[in-house]
Write a protein that binds this DNA or RNA. Structure first.
Lengths: 220, 220
DNA sequence: AAAAAAATTTAGGCTAGGCTAAATTTTTTA
DNA sequence: TAAAAAATTTAGCCTAGCCTAAATTTTTTT
């Protein structure tokens, strides 16, 4: 049986909120993420549980079943592939594609996804650095670190973002920080943890703790 | 205000059914095309009329208002552009794209359409030969003729199809008839109006009246 | 370990878009 | 042109997803 647009969204969000450990997700957290009320979430949880997509016991929060996980990962795959298409082929900025991909991800057609993947050359990461699950549903999260964990003197490579908000991405654009940029931490201020960094061996700039916390990087 | 997926579909179908003359479309015709019951159509018509998208008087059939026509043409533009994308870029067959485009056409985003149009190189026709409305909403139907109106001895070019059913398109594939093919009518059988034709100066074959009726052609 | 607070669920409703059955209007036929 | 048939609308219901208010359960405080 097919899952609705709304059901797919719930599964995707449960996946995101349960994190690497696959821990329980609360009704309230879901209400916040879906921009609905807790009572509405409860309704949907009952329905998803009946369909065997989540493990749900009243008052205890939910986790995805294996089947639910599969559906969620398919949606994530579609979302990220469409984002690549929008940026690489259509010329959108990385700050503009989220809402459109949010719609495209629910277009139902296995063949479409596979042809799209093929057309794009089987990309491994989306424009924000998030990994794209493969056709079999394998999703491997690379273990990047957050820039706040980098010591003075280290040179790292920018690999992704935690915050996907357009305003944050635009801020990075203005700062000249993009995927692949080399960031050298020159100095960290004790007081507010803001940092002085050098981008790609050129431009020096200050970045706030708020920014550092949302930058995923990798030692080189 | 935004129109729903369903509302857009009604407008698109009313456009298609009212033909070149913009004539009234009946409730029953809409029920058939939308695969719903007449009573449901009546409900929707009331709603579309309230929104100013159609001219509706009880029992009298409907026509599109100028505003409704605009919406319909936008949907058609999106549908046909996506079909070009699916065939030209993703490698789908012309018989496989209708249902997927039916979903994609409702993705809301003006910018997306324009970027897609640009990416595709501003195509004028979709993979079935149907004209693509321009960004301003101009839709000019070329006046092709149907193959049944072609006399013996004439050579014409295949420009489109009236029937978009996969089975018909696949039949054309098997017959080697595609957009742009030159068709020379060698003989027409009085009895059943079937015809003997030559395709691109090579392959000769018989085509039934049913096929002739659905082929749009142009004198050269 | 009670009491208070927070989280969650239940009860009862609402809207969009469907449906069936019955009523009404228009069209066709005799 | 009146009766029959066909088309259309109205009335009353249904489901998916959402809502508020009230009830219930869990968690936190004192």
């Amino acid at each position: 049986m097919q899952n609705s647009f709304t059901e797919e969204n719930y599964l995707k969000i449960i996946h995101a909120l349960s994190g690497r450990d696959g821990g329980e997700v609360s009704t309230n957290a879901l209400a916040e993420s879906t921009a609905t009320r807790a009572a509405s979430v409860t309704d949907m949880l009952r329905k998803l549980a009946e369909k065997g997509l989540i493990n749900y016991k009243k008052y205890q929060g939910v986790t995805l079943t294996e089947q639910g996980e599969k559906v969620a990962i398919k949606v994530i795959r579609k979302h990220r592939l469409w984002e690549v298409f929008l940026v690489e082929k259509l010329g959108f900025g990385w700050d503009e594609v989220h809402d459109i991909a949010e719609e495209l991800e629910h277009i139902p057609s296995e063949i479409l996804v596979e042809k799209l993947d093929n057309f794009l050359g089987h990309p491994r990461f989306d424009p924000h650095g998030d990994p794209i699950p493969d056709a079999k549903g394998n999703l491997t999260e690379p273990d990047y670190k957050v820039l706040t964990d980098v010591h003075v003197g280290e040179k790292v490579r920018m690999m992704g973002v935690l915050d996907h908000a357009p305003s944050f991405l635009q801020h990075l654009d203005r700062s000249g920080i993009k995927l692949g940029s080399v960031i050298e931490v020159k100095e960290i201020n004790e007081y507010d943890k803001s940092a002085s960094v050098q981008i790609d061996g050129g431009q020096s700039l200050f970045i706030s703790l708020e920014v550092s916390k949302n930058l995923l990087v990798q030692r080189r």
